[in-house]
Design a protein around this nucleic acid. Structure first.
Lengths: 357, 357
DNA sequence: TGTTAGCACTCACCTCGGTCGAGTGCTAAT
DNA sequence: ATTAGCACTCGACCGAGGTGAGTGCTAACA
């Protein structure tokens, strides 16, 4: 595997990524300044095919990269194109300033922006660090008749809240009692260990009404579940139709359907990452776990929004996606994110209020 | 315009809705048990075309309904097919039991279910009753270091909340003071009238720190804005690709793009309704405000989730959509909704907690 | 007078053969 | 090791001809 072969392979993949058409020897001979004739290129191409980096759709067509070819390209061939869209960077910066409790809002805006910049569908999801969500603090307030809000702060730093219905005849006093008791007793408890048995135990404490306690506990459990489930966003599904590999509408429909199936797409994107230990992951065609994804590639990256929130953003495209560009966009986003940290703790409130009217 | 013409028109539209192909006289002659020859049908068709109910794509093709034809069909011709998908009804019932603060969650599930049942894209949005959101109550709690939660209850009954960042050196006492002041002063105030001037006025009150007050007010304004913007959901965009009228991928891309543009689709669906005063609206092709929607029809309906929450659900499809079926589904949904009311106030908490683990 | 049979006509769509051209693999010359 | 030359492959494109569904019109019919 000499250097020349690598150069040729890179040129072929570059070209194919751009055009989507099988690329021929003549084309490469011209584009590459190696002063080689098409015939020589052809020989090299035959070799590369034998080695499994290229494929031929049919005898008299040009060559197309194989998954293995893309992998080599991504790992060591491609030249990271400089991404320098000032406007995009500015928009990113603005989005990342979204305040701390607006994680979901931030994700939504980020998916939108990235899908516009890259021209691919985007998926973004908040990562949870394992199953163990340990309660740090529980608060409970009456907010309206029959309605109370329960707010759970976890050790991992996330804050869930939920409105619950409580009996109409519950007095402020009774609610306070429940609140005080929970605040004391639930510290350090895992959310997943909350169940009816616990409710029964707790309700033994003097003055605790079980009919207030139960909805509260239920609210705690659900607030967390909803949080997880909900925090997956996709955008730019329409971009799927941009690429000839999905011109077959059945295929396009399948992919768009997958993008709409939040749980599914979340799994795909989180599982793929389990394999490796970098912070930028690329999964190409057959490397994807799910076989429905075999025609797609995913480039994903994680971001630490702050000390306790980690986010995963993935770009989904055809195998022929513009890896160089996508990677550079995701990296730029990361650097913007790092600069962000300072600002987020210092929101310039006044100005905002006016602007929001 | 005699009765026979109407029967023929209905048959033509029924047929066209089913097949999507221009329908010919022979076809109708057979399908209809009027014992009329194709020639007669042809004459009638020519009349109907003259009257503007039918169109001819080209001379030697069959007839296709015009927007006017569809309108007549929807208003007085179509026979409301009985929808009776037990499974679907059960799922609806289950979804509608989602608890009161889970409006967004409910909407998401409803869009999903309806898109599956109908095979069309669905849009759902929470309606706000005008611009006037009057504050009933404001509460403020510290939930973590530097983080507080502000909860706004409005006269219309909706509850918004938001986590805000406050200065690290704010004491519980200072926060309480702000909370008490706001609770007293903001009652009856319109959210939209909150601005920096108000902040300045309020901060004059003894012991109020402006650097706590400002983020809180900002939080109030934003919580509401976010609420509005966010509560629009779409699902089933993939279904667009099911229909030959969108086999042109540019057209499909456009529509899917519109569905992803939440603000836009929300406008389309809310504006259309302004025209009329029923609770089930149908907008056909050119009747749509936005010209990008001229190839689509929308069937929409409003639902009162409870006394203070009204929701709008719209089904978007090609003009050739199966109006009868869609209308019946939306109506069934409404009847399920009515039965719901009682249950929602009586959540059976215990069982849920176990199930959720 | 409304209905129908018959007929000529239109037009999208399918199929089929032919041509074109991009691309290959192989061989022989450099 | 490289290249020129050449025969070959195969999808894409094109135009001609045939097919069939459907029409409008006219004249006959009940």
């Amino acid at each position: 595997m000499d250097d020349r072969k690598l150069k040729i392979l890179e040129a072929i993949i570059d070209e194919y990524i751009q055009t989507g058409e099988p690329v021929g020897s003549r084309n490469i001979s011209k584009k590459l300044d190696l002063k080689l004739s098409p015939a020589t290129i052809r020989n090299e191409m035959a070799d590369l095919e034998e080695m499994g980096y290229l494929e031929q759709p049919h005898t008299s067509a040009g060559r197309v990269p194989s998954d293995r070819g893309y992998r080599l390209y991504v790992d060591s061939l491609m030249s990271p194109r400089q991404f320098d869209d000032q406007e995009g960077l500015a928009a990113m910066t603005e989005i990342l300033h979204s305040k701390i409790d607006e994680l979901s809002y931030m994700l939504q805006r980020a998916t939108r922006l990235l899908s516009q910049i890259t021209g691919y569908p985007i998926v973004a999801t908040a990562k949870t660090d394992g199953d163990t969500e340990i309660i740090k603090n529980v608060q409970l307030f009456l907010v309206d008749v029959e309605k109370a809000m329960v707010v759970v702060t976890t050790e991992s730093g996330s804050i869930h809240n939920r409105i619950i219905l409580i009996p109409a005849d519950a007095t402020q006093d009774q609610v306070d009692k429940v609140a005080k008791m929970l605040s004391a007793k639930l510290h350090g408890v895992e959310i997943s260990s909350i169940d009816v048995a616990l409710a029964n135990t707790l309700s033994k404490i003097e003055g605790i009404r079980i009919d207030i306690l139960l909805p509260v506990l239920q609210g705690i459990v659900e607030s967390r579940r909803r949080n997880e489930e909900h925090r997956t966003y996709t955008d730019g599904a329409k971009n799927v139709l941009e690429y000839p590999e999905f011109s077959d509408s059945a295929r396009a429909k399948e992919l768009i359907g997958m993008l709409e199936e939040k749980g599914f797409i979340r799994d795909v994107v989180t599982h793929m990452e389990m394999d490796q230990e970098q912070d930028l992951y690329v999964s190409i065609g057959s490397e994807n776990q799910d076989e429905k994804m075999q025609d797609c590639s995913i480039v994903a990256s994680t971001y630490d929004v702050d000390s306790s929130h980690r986010v995963l953003i993935g770009v989904i495209g055809p195998k022929r996606m513009d890896y160089a560009r996508v990677v550079s966009v995701l990296k730029d986003m990361k650097s913007v994110m790092n600069r962000r940290e300072i600002k987020s703790l210092n929101p310039d409130s006044g100005a905002h209020i006016e602007g929001d009217k």
